[in-house]
Design a binder for these strands. Sequence first.
DNA 1: CATGAATGAGTATTCATTCAT
DNA 2: GATGAATGAATACTCATTCAT
Lengths: 193, 193, 193, 193
Amino acid sequence: MSGAQERPLRADAARNRAKVLDVATEVFTTRGVGVPTEEIARAAGVGVGTLFRHFPTKEALLEAVMVRRLEAMAAMTAQLADRADPAEPAEALFACFRLVVEQSAGKNEFAQALAAAGVDVHAALREPTGEIQARLAGLLSRAQRGGQIRPDLGLPELLALLVGTGTTLEQLGGDPAARERIFDVVFDGLRPR
Amino acid sequence: MSGAQERPLRADAARNRAKVLDVATEVFTTRGVGVPTEEIARAAGVGVGTLFRHFPTKEALLEAVMVRRLEAMAAMTAQLADRADPAEPAEALFACFRLVVEQSAGKNEFAQALAAAGVDVHAALREPTGEIQARLAGLLSRAQRGGQIRPDLGLPELLALLVGTGTTLEQLGGDPAARERIFDVVFDGLRPR
Amino acid sequence: MSGAQERPLRADAARNRAKVLDVATEVFTTRGVGVPTEEIARAAGVGVGTLFRHFPTKEALLEAVMVRRLEAMAAMTAQLADRADPAEPAEALFACFRLVVEQSAGKNEFAQALAAAGVDVHAALREPTGEIQARLAGLLSRAQRGGQIRPDLGLPELLALLVGTGTTLEQLGGDPAARERIFDVVFDGLRPR
Amino acid sequence: MSGAQERPLRADAARNRAKVLDVATEVFTTRGVGVPTEEIARAAGVGVGTLFRHFPTKEALLEAVMVRRLEAMAAMTAQLADRADPAEPAEALFACFRLVVEQSAGKNEFAQALAAAGVDVHAALREPTGEIQARLAGLLSRAQRGGQIRPDLGLPELLALLVGTGTTLEQLGGDPAARERIFDVVFDGLRPR
DNA sequence: CATGAATGAGTATTCATTCAT
DNA sequence: GATGAATGAATACTCATTCAT
């Protein structure tokens, strides 16, 4: 599925790439994508040239950041789904929901990418988003068959709610009890009445 | 309550001002605030100079756009609240919720402003946002006292949900039935179980 | 010597013109020529349109301001020269020198115009500057013939010193004793040793 | 005494920086500070970005230009003062005076900065201006104690005369004999009568 | 490969001047 | 005539991207 075969990076190059990715994740998440690349490079301890060697475009860097996060999320989602109590698919669905929402924290571009997958998302995002979507879809339909989730809800609505709930929490700030209440509202709303 | 007394604008000036405001509303809403002022001016059929005569700053323009929308929302919210069936405050609350969410369409900065009111909002936004918040707060507590809304929910959570639901719908796109299902989920979630 | 015959201005127009001229004099003198025309118009209580009707260009306004001042200076110079004690032409010369320097206060563009007269000065400035120069030249040569001023000094040097002394005083600020010492230095320097 | 330790510039970068500084010196001196940065960049054969990389602000560029000149002037002033015949401090003072006036040619902002030192001058200018002022002050008081300069003159007057004499010469143009006469006048005026 | 200097298109804002009311 | 709204060229500064060292 991947394109050109890439030669393994030299150790220092790999380290630089990783450092940039880490810093960019942090920076994009907390301060948005408006931050100058130069600043990211400096924070990562490399020159801009190095940054652009690894990521030919700022957008490519953002994409890489998102791919990495989405892959992690895909793995965690898979775990949660596999270990789920077969009698309680809704619980696993909720756990995945929380996971994605919380991992998408910050400027929320991750959940958005996830929801947009297949529409106009960059090729590199297709795989992890597809996998997460598939897991969610599986849990959703099992929970619906089990009567734990309202039957009229499709995957698109679930994904949109994922993104929206991220925004809700971002608005709300850090109060953990209040955040919990938001999840309560949303999860209650997802259940059949 | 307003500051300097302004003379009524000349007819053509008023027309230009309105045109700029309309275009800016449209543009900011659909494409975000990153759009160049020159483009807005061109789309409004005026020179940049004219735009800046009416709105001394890009930020001032954005503020004016938001004030206008928020004032309209405040008026509609007031109507809805006043005409509400006293026995059904939750219905009125939901109606206001829908209203705000739907009017906040696009890049969703309206609902965000509403939720941020009193925090770091520009003076001009304080009044309309304050009024809307007051209405929502009133309906919320009445509905809670009547047992129609879960009692553990505060105004901050409600406002955050407003913003988040806007994002949810934005993600979802135009399918009306699906949008309706989102409202169902959220409103069901708001009710005591 | 003047060009097209101008019809006399209507009373209000004349008043407006005068007001603009007064304000512009004040403003240019204290704050330099960088001040926006709009601000001058406002301070004069007229619209920009009116200002530009009377002075087709900002430069024309500056020129008018200077002409007026230079004309006043020419008149005062003439008086001083005419009333001078024939035995003490140097005293009259010094009096004129002080007069010009002090009237040129502020951004010092008047003395500069005076010194530049005949070089690249606008036509309108030629007459008053010419007259002042003639008076100074007369006093200078009389004082030199009388042995009161060093004989090697030409009018150009005197004019340049006029401008420079204006700058010196501007630098010095308001202390009257210190200003007096500057005049002492310059006038002593002008005398034969 | 200086702040952050700067690594030596790369050869090409140093060349560009110097070129910009040279061009800016020339341009600011002959045409004033109103000249567009882009023009300076073009004249220096670099892009605007390069100019702004070296001097983050137009004002910073002006400052750098002035610092460089003032430092050169400080060095030369120091030499003159140190080599001065102890019996003739006035001669050394006059030599310094000439030096500063002649180096401050053009729009004369150097001498002005010198005179303003300690008032509202940028930090970077404080050191060289302070040193020059100190030298002048030392020579002045020695010459006054020796009866070679009129005793009523303070450093402020001397500095103001420095600036003013610069303006005088600027007005006068290039005739060397006439320029010499100006110095004669000023220096004679500085002596006790 | 890494570096960071160079590039220049792009952006908000100002202001002299024109022109419809 | 007077007004002030409209105009748009001009200007300082930013930042993604390229390229010489």
